[in-house]
Write a protein that binds this DNA or RNA. Structure first.
Lengths: 250, 250
DNA sequence: GTCTATTGACTTGTCAGACAACTGATTTAT
DNA sequence: ATAAATCAGTTGTCTGACAAGTCAATAGAC
């Protein structure tokens, strides 16, 4: 049973098309700019107003748009939420690319082997399973200075050493996205602070015992399987993570 | 200029009512349970289908519901996202309460003074402003063991020492929520790993230099002002934070 | 009897057009 | 000069209908 025998919609639904078109439009606008009125926008995008409104509602929920009854719809983003926030999963490579930051893979190791018990648990396979996996381990550096150590554990059924291709630059996420398979839905990332052990201290050029930010992520496909279990260490100061949180009423 | 002269809608709009009703309904269901079909649900809640759909769309966006074209709408929540994730801002007291965990305020200090330059910046007041603030500093312990050091910095115009009331148990957020003023919208929380200095090491009962998770939060009101700037330190192992991240297509 | 194709009930997705409610600026009346 | 009324523009909500997807029951072919 592979991940590829699931069927997904071939043509994009109106809603998805509208979402992409809206994002493109927003990208060309500045914070605070007003969008065209709904009837005009719906006509322009070739959909009905209710459909457009459903899409806009999701963008409001994501904090991209702000609506004011009787006034209009505006581009929100007081801060670049989507740029540096943690609500969106994005490879470091792409993040850096967008802010014109040069990154180098200071260290890259690819290996195929059986998953360790901890990795099996992280991949949410039954305890005791023998799971052949691809391990991608790399250290990211900025201007020669190592800032992050990233490790991906991917079951071989989703990705093999050959599947990485020639111009693999380190990001398993990007490979999945470019390939379009498996279709990804969400990621659950656990956030921990951990003291650097000897191995990571050496790799990242910090003192043993210094505080590192550790992110443990599980990347889920549409059919609710873990397709990537990742463990990352970040050197404080070089990367800042933030998260936007809604207030829980009542 | 206080925060109270802004006007907010007096009666809840249909959409807000429906959202609350839906949450109540979902709460009484289990993961995977199917909701009534949209036409029936709309009738039951006394709104039109488009309105109901807009609300459902936001719940889908939040990961609470899952919709399958031609099949139905189901309660999602593979894990208790809203319970322990970071998408929702919630006081530690309430979080602990819900999981039947006894917490004690091992240390509580309340003080009124002028904000330091760093605090002024955190509150997003103009540089150089003299901002009188209320400082609430406390250490949370579980079963006698300190696990978190929390500090809130609140401009006096929003909260004073007297405003805390008699039965103040340590959470500024809960005071705001109970009082209903100022109306809160979102919080921006920055995530850092930091080594414990002497002061925090002593307070939290850990070795100097051990890794702590540091969260720096800015709590925003509806009129886009910072009403609470907070700095928190957490001892690893006692609290786990995670965040659900969407995949960034393209 | 077994397998395959078809039908049909049920559900979500989308559409169209209309009116209500709100906002902000303009105009009018005092 | 000031306050009230008006009005154009926008989002919010409603009604009713049809399209498209899913799944199980049914009818048909072998």
């Amino acid at each position: 049973m592979t991940a590829s025998n699931a069927t997904y919609p071939k043509v994009r639904s109106p809603r998805v098309q509208v979402e992409e078109a809206l994002y493109a439009m927003i990208e060309s606008l500045k914070t605070g700019d007003q969008l065209p009125p709904e009837p005009a926008l719906a006509k322009q995008l070739g959909v009905s107003r209710p459909t457009l409104r459903e899409v806009m509602r999701t963008l409001v929920e994501r904090g991209v748009l702000v609506r004011r009854h009787g006034v209009g719809t505006f581009v929100a983003s007081r801060f670049p939420v989507l740029e540096s926030g943690m609500e969106i999963l994005e490879s470091l490579a792409r993040l850096a690319e967008r802010i014109d930051l040069q990154t180098e893979a200071a260290y890259l190791e690819v290996e195929e082997r059986l998953a360790t018990p901890i990795e099996v648990a992280g991949l949410e396979f039954p305890q005791g399973s023998e799971v052949p996996v691809l391990i991608v381990n790399r250290v990211i550096a900025i201007e020669g200075e190592p800032v992050a150590d990233l490790r991906d554990i991917v079951p071989l059924e989703y990705l093999t050493k050959e599947g990485l291709g020639e111009n693999f630059h380190g990001s398993v996420l990007d490979v999945f996205l470019e390939r379009g398979e498996p279709l990804l839905s969400t990621s659950r990332t656990e956030i921990v602070a951990e003291a650097a052990n000897v191995k990571f201290a050496k790799r990242l050029g910090v003192r043993k015992g210094s505080a590192l930010l550790k992110l443990v992520g599980q990347l889920y496909s549409y059919d609710e399987k873990v397709v990537d279990y990742s463990v990352s260490y970040f050197v404080p100061g070089h990367f800042k993570f933030h998260v936007m949180r809604r207030v829980n009423r009542k």
